[in-house]
Structure formats: structure tokens, C-alpha cells
Design a protein around this nucleic acid. Structure first.
Length: 320
DNA sequence: AACAGAGGCAACCGCGGACGC
DNA sequence: AGCGTCCGCGGTTGCCTCTGT
């Protein structure tokens, strides 16, 4: 069965010839694509509009980056996938010059196997050995909205990002423990967070406060926040001197070993050099990280600060 | 050299949402 | 409100190339 958009006409299928590519490129660069369904006729192609669109987006667009994925791109894909799942188009927005199709293919052919080889479930990013119990219960009872419980937290959150399959601090949380950690309070936020992921909890906390979708990511120097609206965001994390940390914090211990400090502070954070102005991370050299989330659209931004305190052992684990 | 199997990737398919009439 | 069309997305397919025997 052909596409409904082209069922009436005789269309060619399969691989595109260089001549067809040339026709399509010439048409779009001179006329723009306009309505895709009219492109084949105007460009003199025996293809359906859908096929033309796909060919242009995935292959002929001039801003596409060709070649292998870099390690940093791979890490970005993994980190964003952990938050968003198989939303390839959203993930691709974090990778300038890459298409959703390319990211999807790379995931299926390469990253997926790497994660499995590391003992991680590519769907949940949790350890394969411990994920089945939690995964099944989460599917059966999906959690849509959360806020953090500030009083009943006793267990450390497992970190799904790290590669070491058996880190000494890794603990598996059962659902009742997760529920004691996180409680549902709001219906206005549709974030679907993975309560096993510290980063996911932080991501939720920020998005709840700012109505944006910051994506936390780990890298060799600590954490970053990948701004969902910024394609070239990897360079946007700024290290702040730790002494700039706010003096007016209200602490929320989200689990043993981890504290999130929620700061409502009038102090204007210097975001010079950060074009998007969306994220800042600071490291004081003693195992304390401080997140300060700033809305770049505001000149005198409300500042939401998040500190995560953890041991040097944990830092090493993040770095590996 | 010939063949088979595996892997990578481009393209297709079907669905759902947005939009206009 | 209902219908048709278009577009974008994620899942899937199938072809081509590579690698091992």
C-alpha cells in the first residue's frame, strides 16, 4: 500500500539517484519546499512529497553533519535518552547537524549494544540485574507527576549513568522506598521522571520551577544542564567559584548522601559567556556541586539553586 | 573466489496531531 | 462537529557493504 498522499500517482521508490538529488536540491534552494505534496511536481520528480521531505531532511539539507558520532555526541544521546526515552526528534535537537533518523540508527546499531555489554538496560538505563522488578511495576503503575518528599528519605538513589556495573554505593530501591522518596502533589506538571535517577529528580525539580525542560547531563568535570531549547549547549555550562553559592538556602534531603538545596535568591548570577544563560555548575573541589538555574530571558532572573552534596567516591563514580 | 551471515543505514510505513474548510 | 489533507514522528524493512569461512 502506498502513501495516501501519492496513491493516485505513479511514484518511484527506493534509493535516490544523484540526478534526483540534484533536482530536489535545486528546487528547494531556489523555491523553498513550501507544501511538500507539491514538491515532486514542481521539481520534476516521480516521487511522493513524503519521500522528498524525508530525503531533504535526512540527507540533502546543507546544515547536516556527516560522519561518525563523536564521544561527546554519544554521551549526549545517552544522557538525553535517559530522560526522554525514544523521542529521537527531541534527542536530535541536542545534536546540531544530526537527524532523528541518524540518532535512532546510531542508538539501535551501536549504543544499545554498548549499554547491554555494560550490564545496563538500554530502556531504563538501570542495571539489567536489578531493573526487571522496578521496571515491571513502573509500567503497571506509571507515575506521571511528582514532587520531592523532604522528610522521609533514607535510601540513596541509584545512579544509572555510571558505567561501573557494581559500584559500592549503588543500591537498588524498591517501589515502596521510591514512593517514600517522592510523592505525587501536582497535576500541572507532566514530567515523567525516573525516580531511580538522581539526575532525573533534579531535572524534574528544575522543570517544575521554571516551566522549561532542562536536561541534566554528567561529564568529566561534573554535571551540566542541557537546555532543551538550545541545540549547541554543551559549551554552555559555566563553572562558578564556590563562594558564590547562596547564603540563603533551604535544604531538601532527597535521599541519604544527597541534598538538594532549593534557593530562592535575589542575587543576580553572572552568566557572562553563557549565551543561552540557562545553566551554571560550580565545583568547590571538596565534593560539593552547586546548581543554579537561571532563566536567560529575564534580566533580573529568579534564581533556583540546587546543590548536590556527595562524597568523593561518588564523584569518581560520576566521572568514570 | 565464492558464499553466508551480520551490521549499518537509507527509506518506507502507519499513526496521530494540527489545521483548514 | 466532522472530514480531509498535510506534516512529523517512531518503528520497521530491506538493500548494500563488510567480514569471516
Amino acid at each position: 500500500m502506498g502513501h495516501h498522499c501519492c496513491s493516485k500517482q505513479k511514484v518511484k521508490r527506493g534509493l535516490w539517484s544523484p540526478e534526483e538529488d540534484e533536482k530536489l536540491v535545486r528546487h528547494i534552494t531556489t523555491q523553498g519546499h513550501g507544501c511538500w505534496s507539491s514538491v515532486p511536481k514542481l521539481a520534476g520528480l516521480q516521487r511522493c512529497g513524503k519521500s522528498c521531505r524525508l530525503r531533504w531532511i535526512n540527507y540533502l539539507r546543507p546544515d547536516l553533519k556527516r560522519g561518525s558520532f563523536t564521544e561527546q555526541e554519544e554521551r549526549t544521546i545517552i544522557d538525553v535518552h535517559r530522560i526522554l526515552g525514544n523521542r529521537w526528534a527531541q534527542i536530535a535537537k541536542h545534536l546540531p547537524g544530526r537527524t532523528d533518523n541518524e540518532v535512532k540508527n546510531f542508538w539501535n546499531s551501536c549504543i544499545k549494544k554498548k549499554l547491554i555489554a555494560q550490564g545496563l538496560d538500554p530502556n531504563t538505563h538501570n542495571l539489567l540485574s536489578s531493573s526487571s522488578h522496578q521496571q515491571s511495576s513502573r509500567i503497571a503503575n506509571p507515575v506521571q507527576t511528582f514532587t520531592m518528599d523532604t522528610t522521609t528519605t533514607t535510601s540513596r538513589i541509584a545512579n544509572p549513568v555510571i558505567n561501573n556495573p557494581n559500584p559500592p554505593y549503588m543500591k537498588t530501591l524498591h517501589d515502596d522506598q521510591i514512593q517514600s522518596l517522592i510523592t505525587t502533589t501536582t497535576s500541572s506538571c507532566d514530567n515523567n521522571i525516573n525516580p531511580n535517577s538522581l539526575l532525573s529528580v533534579l531535572e524534574f525539580a528544575c522543570s517544575r520551577e521554571t516551566n522549561t525542560t532542562p536536561i541534566f547531563s554528567s561529564n568529566s568535570s561534573g554535571f551540566s544542564i542541557l537546555n532543551d531549547n538550545c541545540a549547541s549547549n554543551w559549551g554552555s555550562a559555566i563553572e562558578l567559584p564556590f563562594e558564590q553559592q547562596s547564603q540563603h538556602q533551604t535544604s531538601q534531603q532527597i535521599c541519604e548522601g544527597y541534598t538538594v538545596n532549593n534557593v530562592h535568591d535575589d542575587r543576580l548570577i553572572n552568566v557572562a559567556g553563557d549565551k543561552e544563560g540557562e545553566n551554571i555548575s560550580a565545583f568547590d573541589g571538596s565534593g560539593n556541586y552547586d546548581f543554579e538555574f537561571v532563566d536567560s530571558a529575564l534580566m533580573a532572573p529568579p534564581v533556583y539553586n540546587y546543590s548536590v552534596k556527595y562524597s568523593i567516591d561518588d564523584q569518581l563514580a560520576w566521572d568514570c
